[in-house]
Simulated assay, not measured.
Amino acid sequence: MSPLPRPRPAVNWFCAGAALSTLCFWCLSSWFTIVNDWLGLRITYDTRPWWLVSAMTTVSLLPWLSLGLIVLLRRWRGPAYGATAFGSGIVAPYLLALGCLVLLPTLDDHWHRRGFDSAAWKANQAADPLWPDRLCMVDDLLARVTFVGLSQERVVELLGPGDRGPLSNGWNAVYWLGPQRGAFRMDEEVLALRFGPEGLVVEYRILLD
């Protein structure tokens, strides 16, 4: 039986950089729990003593200081020190976090989408407060229904009479959808429609409040 292949040195350096970067990031993001829950202190961000500020600064710089040391060792002692792989490992967790920040909200949105149902739209129940019925169905609604030129009676038949809210000024019908989709869900999405003199839809859009 052939022996298992040994890990390549570059992989070891990459893993070391990723582990160090991840550990430092966790320490910085969990400092409040570490200091107050584990050490029993009562410190807020504004009342941090000098030693805690120095420690947090050191932790934030540690991956990059380590990379600088590896670069120097490579220059002095040769290619056994994988500076490139180590640096790639340091950056990898940040790229992974950025990718999750960008991709996960989009995947979450597609995962929750479902077909439009008039009765469910009017009820607008929210088993999950982040994904009420209207927010899950609005994309299918806009794909299936051509609103421009649609009569007000037909709109009310499909969607109900509309909601009242601060965006109703200037729009004839406003339908609250739910929390803004995306990474930072701080605003509310609404579907707003404007009718012309003949009672036909002349404009519609999804707005943020």
Rank of each mutant, 00 (worst) to 15 (best):
M1H: 12
S2Q: 15
P3L: 11
R8V: 03
V11S: 15
V11H: 12
F14V: 01
C15F: 08
A16T: 05
A19V: 07
L20N: 04
T22M: 03
L28A: 08
S29E: 11
S30F: 07
T33C: 04
I34F: 04
N36M: 06
N36Y: 05
D37C: 15
D37G: 12
L41C: 12
R42T: 15
I43G: 13
I43S: 11
T44H: 03
D46Q: 11
D46R: 08
T47K: 05
P49K: 12
P49R: 05
W50A: 08
V53D: 13
V53L: 03
S54I: 00
S54F: 12
A55H: 04
M56V: 08
V59D: 02
V59E: 06
S60N: 12
S60P: 07
L65Q: 08
G68T: 14
L72A: 15
L73K: 08
W76K: 12
W76Y: 14
R77C: 04
G78W: 01
P79R: 07
A80S: 12
G82M: 03
G82H: 00
T84E: 04
T84W: 02
G87R: 01
S88W: 07
V91Y: 00
P93S: 10
L95A: 13
L95F: 13
C100M: 15
L104Q: 13
L104M: 08
T106C: 11
D109L: 06
D117P: 03
D117Y: 01
S118T: 01
S118K: 06
A119D: 15
K122Y: 04
A123H: 14
A123D: 13
Q125L: 06
D128S: 04
L135G: 03
L135W: 06
D139F: 00
D140N: 11
D140V: 01
A143I: 05
A143C: 12
R144H: 10
V145Y: 14
G149H: 11
G149A: 11
E153H: 13
V156R: 05
E157N: 14
P161N: 09
P161C: 10
R164W: 09
R164V: 14
G165M: 03
G165Y: 01
S168K: 07
S168C: 12
V174F: 02
G178H: 08
A183F: 08
F184P: 01
R185W: 00
E188I: 10
A192S: 06
A192F: 03
L193I: 10
F195W: 00
F195H: 09
G196R: 06
G196C: 11
G196W: 00
P197H: 04
P197D: 13
E198S: 09
E198F: 09
G199W: 03
L200T: 07
V202M: 13
E203S: 08
R205K: 11
I206C: 01
D209W: 06
